[in-house]
Computed example of a mutant assay.
Amino acid sequence: MTTPDHTSARVALVTGGTSGFGVEIAARLRADGMRVAVTGRRPPVGEAVERLGDALFVAGDLTERGAPERIVGEVVDAFGRLDVLVNNAGRRHAGLIVDNPVEELVDVFALNTIAAMAMTAAAARAMIPTGGGAIINMLSRLASSGVPTLTTYTASKGALAAYTQGAAVELAPHNIRVNAVAPGMARTPLIEDWLADQPNPDRALADTLRDIPLGRLATPEDVAAAVAYLASPEAAYVTGASIAVDGGYTAR
């Protein structure tokens, strides 16, 4: 693993960075030489502690008023700047349209969409004085395809996809690139929860694999590699794009 140069290394903040994709993304950015901060409602535990190493943990609920500004402020206070934001925090939601109470709809959009928008705004304010940066929004293969019972989740990610393109154009004059990664199914807590809710989890997984041309689930490493590219100088001319890391699911 590369040891970051704390006098010049770029700084990355990964929301939802204490579990699932977030841990692998944060670990990959550390390995690429960045100073890394992660945020979550609870501190990392177990294997995540080792994977995150010396990453700065900032506690916070992104849906609370003022939390995005406070979190970005703490990162800038600690490291002096912010160069990369990965909007990874999110929650899955399953339920029939006719059965979804409005309160659930509000909660899903509050974290999956509005929190990411608020974090983007707070990060942009920090990036502009230092010459720009990169923002990566985590979408889903479902942002561009309909699946029964997952319509609310799909809508929240679809809204974030549209926001990504608008933000890319608006922030381009400040040299802030805004892109997205749209993962397919992988063995993360979100997917484990979804499988656990199915009447026959093994059959649900088998049915899912039949719909994936490459015939396997994504790994956290697959997703982290795409994020690392968009965060890197090699993607300096890439903005407003979404990389599908879904084994060909949305290409069918």
Results as ranks from 00 to 15, higher is better:
Leu85Asp: 14
Leu230Gly: 04
Ala9Met: 15
Pro129Arg: 14
Arg51Leu: 14
Asp99Thr: 05
Ala26His: 05
Val49Gln: 08
Phe79Ala: 10
Ala161Met: 15
Glu221Gly: 07
Ser232His: 03
Ala118Asp: 12
Ala167Thr: 09
Leu214Gly: 07
Asp211Tyr: 13
Ser19Ala: 13
Asp246Cys: 15
Ala244Asp: 14
Ser242Cys: 09
Leu82Ile: 01
Asp32Gln: 13
Ser140Pro: 06
Gly22Lys: 14
Leu209Tyr: 14
Leu142Phe: 13
Gly158Lys: 02
Ile135Asp: 09
Ser145Phe: 02
Leu209Thr: 09
Leu150Arg: 11
Gly247Asn: 07
Ala162Ile: 11
Trp194Thr: 06
Pro201Lys: 08
Thr120Ala: 14
Arg141His: 12
Trp194Pro: 06
Leu190Arg: 02
Asp99Leu: 02
Gly95Ser: 12
Pro201Arg: 12
Leu171Val: 01
Leu142Val: 13
Val84Phe: 06
Leu85Arg: 12
Arg28Asp: 01
Ala236Glu: 11
Leu82Pro: 09
Arg41Glu: 06
Thr239Ala: 04
Leu139Asn: 03
Gly40Pro: 01
Asp193Met: 08
Val11Met: 08
Thr154Glu: 13
Val23Asp: 02
Ala228Gly: 07
Pro233Ser: 10
Ala116Gln: 08
Thr208Ile: 05
Gly20Tyr: 10
Asn137Phe: 03
Thr154Arg: 09
Leu13Trp: 08
Gly248Asp: 03
Ala244Gln: 09
Val245Ser: 07
Ala226Asp: 01
Ala123Lys: 05
Gly80Ser: 05
Asp202Cys: 05
Asp246Pro: 06
Thr63Ser: 13
Gly22Ile: 11
Met127Ser: 14
Thr7Tyr: 14
Ser156Tyr: 07
Leu195Met: 05
Gly146Pro: 00
Met185Ala: 11
Arg70His: 02
Met185Gly: 12
Val84Arg: 10
Met138Asn: 09
Phe57Gly: 00
Thr18Ala: 09
Ala180Phe: 12
Val14Lys: 09
Leu29Asn: 04
Gln165Arg: 15
